[in-house]
Design a protein around this nucleic acid. Structure first.
Lengths: 134, 134
DNA sequence: CTTGGATTTGATAGTAATTATCCCGATTAT
DNA sequence: ATAATCGGGATAATTACTATCAAATCCAAG
């Protein structure tokens, strides 16, 4: 682990918001929510803090959503179920899967693996009519 | 399959550039390269065309790189090996892995799955000194 | 408690990727 | 041929994110 980061009210507020949060919020959502309780919070601080937390491996930055980065306070290996309609992200366990043949990874040093399942959540299936097409 | 898209010189040029391309280029790279041969090509057309190709499932849009979207003309199931330093992306076969327990996927309709392996390519391992740190 | 240095904050400007708009030209249907 | 539709090019607008920097805050030493 790198050197510890200094705890500040702003950082505490962000960590408190993220703790146990399963919604995989974007920086914008984090700002909006935390700002309600701590109006002195600035956007830059959100990005700064997320950056610090990333370096500490206290938060994961997900690129699952092409539109914006999403943040996940769970940092044990796990995978994600992404709804292609509403962009909701659900954690699922990492079921350890067959690694590709050694040849394919030749020379690479693997640090982390992540499975993304793209699909439709129950709600969005209904919204689409599912069978009626939209 | 949706309705067929109209073929135009611009679209043909982009498809020609993408065909067999393993570099997973960004829209910017596609524009730059195609523009060399077809100077009348505009940026908007690149995005329009990629959009059309996506809808036809003739190209995949990858969100592996948080900074920009990357495009992949291979649309059979396969996974990716991503270098966290140089951001290069290498195709690897999809080795079909243990699906999560039915419970976790409850109610979801899975359309596609994708494994991303984050690591260091041989070149970047050397650049880092790998043991010397940089 | 005060000083001093380092770090963090917050406002904002800047950048880069992507999307929207608008109008023209090409193509298609009638 | 005419009207409607669609694609293309230029560019403005939007959005997410990064950089900058003065002022506030914290921590250690005295």
């Amino acid at each position: 682990m790198e050197k510890k980061i200094k705890m500040t009210p702003q950082r505490a507020a962000i960590m408190e918001y993220l703790d146990g949060n399963m919604s995989h919020p974007s920086a914008d959502e984090i700002y909006t929510e935390v700002h309600k309780m701590y109006p002195m919070m600035s956007f830059a601080t959100v990005y700064n803090t997320l950056d610090a937390l990333k370096k500490q491996n206290m938060v994961w930055e997900l690129s699952v959503d092409g539109d914006r980065r999403r943040y996940d306070p769970r940092t044990e290996p796990h995978d994600h179920l992404v709804c292609v309609d509403c962009r909701s992200i659900k954690d699922i366990g990492h079921n350890g899967h067959k690694c590709p043949s050694g040849d394919e990874l030749k020379g690479y040093m693997i640090l982390r693996e992540h499975v993304e399942y793209f699909g439709l959540c129950p709600k969005c299936q209904r919204k689409r009519g599912m069978g009626g097409d939209g």
